[in-house]
């Protein structure tokens, strides 16, 4: 995605790596290597490379190719809410050692 402007909102934008800790708390394993397929444009992107907006009432992960929302996460005092409807799927390797040779 080509970006000509450099406003503060853009410079505050991170990626899925920034919420690796929260994701590991929720799901019990690292999710940044999960492959996600965008429900709108079909781009395949590792969760660690999804655009992340973290300074909001929740976290929003977006497709770097088309900007559409892939995953939303809200943390309340007692719960986590996760909406992953923006992804066609999330794909994780079962064997962690296989990851090393990609």
């Amino acid at each position: 995605m080509h970006r000509k402007d450099a406003d503060i909102n853009t410079s505050l934008m991170l990626d899925g790596n920034a919420i690796a800790g929260e994701l590991q708390q929720i799901f019990g394993r690292d999710l940044t290597m999960a492959m996600t397929r965008c429900g709108r444009c079909s781009a395949d992107t590792r969760l660690g490379a999804l655009m992340a907006f973290v300074r909001a009432p929740g976290v929003v992960l977006r497709c770097p190719a088309c900007g559409t929302v892939i995953i939303r996460i809200v943390e309340t005092p007692g719960q986590y809410y996760v909406d992953a409807r923006g992804a066609v799927f999330m794909r994780l390797d079962r064997d962690a050692r296989r990851l090393a040779h990609q």
Binding site: H2, R3, A6, L12, M13, L14, D15, A18
Partner: peptide, 29 residues
């Protein structure tokens, strides 16, 4: 920073590097 990461990643892909060989991490201010 996000702008550097995006422009470099785009440049690498344009050079023909496979996406799978590129890993990125964006830092905020």
């Amino acid at each position: 920073p996000t702008l550097l990461v995006e422009s470099v990643a785009d440049g690498l892909v344009e050079m023909g590097l496979p996406q799978a060989r590129i890993r990125t991490e964006r830092f905020g201010p």
